[in-house]
């Protein structure tokens, strides 16, 4: 006896193919939706800002006069922030992931910690700003300096790095570490020579994401009391500073007073995007260099 009735199959064939076509269009439109607004944003920012970008704007000091204003201070401030965020998140984040995945005893407590790290990744950034203000600016009396800002942003993106690194470490095939242990390697030797090199591309992907988030964050910095109008350049971890997103924020706010500030903000956005693009390119380059097949 045949279980599949040919006529039923025929009858349903048309609607199946139609549904297939419709859903394809739905997914395409969903993609277009995001792309469209991204394109609007980019076009608007570039059309407003590109003519304001020149050497003097990039290397100049800040000024209330739109024609003389430069953003070198903010670029340096953001760079200093990254100088804190990159090593702190990388060392602490990867260290935590290594401990959780490879050393910690698996069990309820481990699951509890892991779940909460994922939850921390979803905590609003302004809350981290308050934490930074209490802890670094006031309790530790750093003031609103590079170190306080950098550590606050590090805390903010640490969960992203930890989760990404955990996943990357988990994805390293077990048979590689078994081979290493099988030859009498210790855990640390196996981690250092086998697991980390294999997990590095995944870890870097997470780091890229985290860095992009940190570089564009404004809310925690406003809570910390980071000034926007600051003439001197930061030269050490304990100098006050301003950052590119702060600059954008204040120029946008004040554009009702001075119309040209809106264009300066757009120009600064372009610089921020380029900086982000450069950082990502470096990370992607490193990632591809270390990409391994297994």
């Amino acid at each position: 006896m045949k279980h599949i009735d040919e006529s039923v199959v025929q009858r349903r064939m048309k609607s199946r193919i139609r549904n297939n076509m419709i859903l394809k269009q739905v997914f395409f439109v969903a993609t277009l939706f995001g792309l469209f607004f991204l394109a609007v944003l980019l076009i608007r920012v570039f059309s407003q800002g590109i003519s304001w970008i020149n050497w003097d704007f990039i290397t100049g000091r800040l000024s209330t006069d739109p024609d003389r204003a430069g953003i070198m201070g903010a670029i340096l401030g953001t760079s200093w922030l990254m100088l804190v965020v990159i090593p702190v998140t990388f060392i602490v984040g990867v260290g935590t992931a290594i401990y959780l995945e490879l050393y910690a005893k698996q069990g309820k407590f481990h699951n509890f910690i892991a779940t909460n790290i994922s939850n921390l990744a979803g905590v609003p950034s302004i809350v981290y700003g308050l934490l930074g203000l209490t802890l670094f600016v006031r309790t530790m009396k750093f003031g609103n300096v590079v170190l306080a800002g950098g550590l606050t942003l590090s805390l903010l993106v640490l969960p992203i790095v930890i989760v990404a690194a955990q996943e990357a470490i988990r994805a390293v095939p077990q048979h590689l570490s078994e081979a290493s242990y099988g030859m009498g390697a210790t855990k640390w030797q196996t981690v250092k020579k086998i697991i980390l090199p294999a997990a590095l591309p995944g870890i870097l992907t997470g780091a890229i994401l985290a860095l992009s988030r940190a570089i564009g964050e404004t809310a925690p910095l406003t809570v910390l009391g980071i000034p926007a109008l600051l003439i001197p350049f930061p030269g050490s971890l304990f100098d006050t500073f301003t950052a590119l997103p702060m600059q954008i924020y204040y120029w946008t706010l004040d554009s009702s007073l001075v119309a040209e500030y809106a264009y300066l903000a757009a120009a600064t956005i372009i610089v921020l995007l380029v900086l982000l693009f450069l950082l990502n390119s470096i990370a992607i380059f490193i990632r591809n260099r270390f990409q391994q097949r297994y």
């Binding site: 095939p173 048979h175 590689l176 078994e178 081979a179 290493s180 242990y181 099988g182 030859m183 009498g184 390697a185 210790t186 086998i194 294999a198 391994q292 097949r293 297994y294």
Partner: peptide, 20 residues
């Protein structure tokens, strides 16, 4: 010490598992 043991007792696995 397992490290010492595994130095003297080597292992070849089911699936070839060279390092990358």
């Amino acid at each position: 010490s397992v490290e010492e043991l595994r130095t003297q007792v080597g292992m070849v696995f089911q699936k070839p598992n060279p390092f990358p």
